[in-house]
Computed example of a mutant assay.
Amino acid sequence: MPAKLKKGALVRVIKEKLENSVEAKASDQRFPSYIFESKGEILEMNDEYALIRFYVPTPSVWLRLDQLEPIE
């Protein structure tokens, strides 16, 4: 799946992969519902992470590529 992800792509967060991740265990696990219910756009990428902008008035967030799925 990460091969399909690229800058500018619309994505959705995979709830199961984010909730059980090392990143979630290291921070507040009360994720806002918009992360899972709305689409986001990839602004930047590196080998493992993507910077996602959601279309709500919140800051962008870095998430692992395997925690994202493309929206077609």
Rank of each mutant, 00 (worst) to 15 (best):
E44L: 14
E19K: 15
F36G: 02
Y34D: 00
K25C: 07
A26I: 01
Y34W: 08
R30N: 15
V13H: 04
E69S: 12
K17N: 14
A26V: 01
Y49A: 13
I42E: 02
S38W: 01
N46W: 05
P70I: 15
S38V: 07
E44R: 13
L5Q: 09
P32A: 08
N20Y: 04
L43P: 00
E48N: 13
K15D: 14
A3D: 12
Q29M: 15
L65F: 05
P57Q: 05
A24M: 05
S21W: 10
K4D: 13
I52C: 08
N46T: 04
Y55G: 10
L5N: 00
K39F: 13
R64G: 04
F31V: 03
L10M: 12
I42L: 05
L51F: 00
D28L: 06
N20H: 14
V56K: 04
L63N: 04
P57I: 07
K4F: 09
G40W: 05
V61M: 05
K7F: 07
N46R: 04
R30T: 07
R53P: 00
I71A: 02
E44H: 07
G8H: 00
I42A: 08
V22M: 13
A26Y: 11
Q67M: 15
L18A: 10
S27P: 02
I52T: 01
P2T: 12
I14C: 04
G8C: 10
A50G: 07
V56D: 01
E48M: 04
G8R: 06
E72S: 15
P59H: 03
A9G: 05
E72V: 12
A3I: 10
L63R: 00
K4P: 00
N46H: 03
L51V: 03
R12F: 07
W62I: 08
S60F: 01
A50T: 05
E37Y: 02
S33A: 15
D47T: 07
E19L: 15
W62R: 05
L5P: 00
R64H: 09
P70Q: 10
R64L: 11
L18Q: 04
